Amino acid sequence: MRSCWHVIFATAQVLVSSMLTFWLVEPKNFSVGVAATAVALSAFVVALPESTHLMSKRIAFGQFVNVYVGTVIHGAQTGVVIHPLGVASSTTLGALASVVAIFFPYPQHCP
């Protein structure tokens, strides 16, 4: 259950930071260099607070790479809000699926 909170916290950090980045630098202007700079700066901002759990930082780093690489690939077609929400929702859905799996374990064999 604790890991779900790490996912939610990391996702919130990524959403705020990536949307701010997309509003400052439009997705159509993203290049490999801009994406690398955005990942580095965003990772620095997430890594800076000591109170953030290491697992939340790792999840956020992976999400940043997914968001910014997807933006480089899709360019101007990338939505400023929709693309980060898509990455965030898939991560959150995975975390919720792991919680559901705890409550409904795999089928047991009948003797």
Rank of each mutant, 00 (worst) to 15 (best):
T92S: 09
V99H: 02
L85W: 03
V80W: 03
V65Y: 07
I73S: 05
A60T: 03
V81R: 09
V81Y: 07
Q77H: 15
N29D: 15
G33M: 14
S98T: 14
K57M: 12
A60Y: 03
A40H: 12
T91W: 03
R58F: 15
F30P: 01
G86D: 05
T52G: 00
I8F: 15
T52L: 12
G94E: 14
L41M: 11
S42R: 04
A76G: 06
A10K: 01
V81H: 05
V69W: 05
V69S: 06
E26G: 07
S18H: 01
S90Y: 08
S51V: 12
K28V: 09
T37Q: 10
N29Y: 09
I8A: 14
A36K: 12
S98V: 12
T78R: 00
V39D: 00
M19R: 04
A43K: 14
H74E: 13
T78N: 02
A76W: 04
S17G: 08
A35K: 00
L41V: 15
V72S: 02
S3H: 10
V25H: 03
V14G: 02
S56N: 02
G94L: 11
Q63G: 00
Y106W: 13
F22Y: 03
T91D: 05
L41K: 14
P111N: 12
S42N: 15
P49V: 06
V32H: 09
A95E: 03
F104S: 10
G62N: 11
A12V: 10
G70L: 04
P84E: 04
M55Y: 08
F44I: 15
V16F: 08
F44W: 09
A97N: 15
T52V: 10
M55H: 11
S89R: 10
A38H: 01
A97M: 06
F103I: 11
H74D: 14
I82K: 15
A60C: 12
N66F: 09
S42V: 05
V7D: 02
F30H: 00
S89M: 07
C4F: 14
C110G: 13
G79A: 06
F61A: 09
T37V: 08
L15Q: 01
T52Q: 08
V34L: 06
A101R: 13
P105W: 08
A10L: 07
T91V: 14
H6A: 14
V32G: 07
H74C: 06
I73A: 09
G33R: 07
P107V: 13
S3M: 10
F44T: 14
V46F: 02
T37N: 07
P49M: 11
H53E: 13
S89N: 10
I59N: 00
C110F: 13
T91A: 10
S18R: 01
H83A: 06
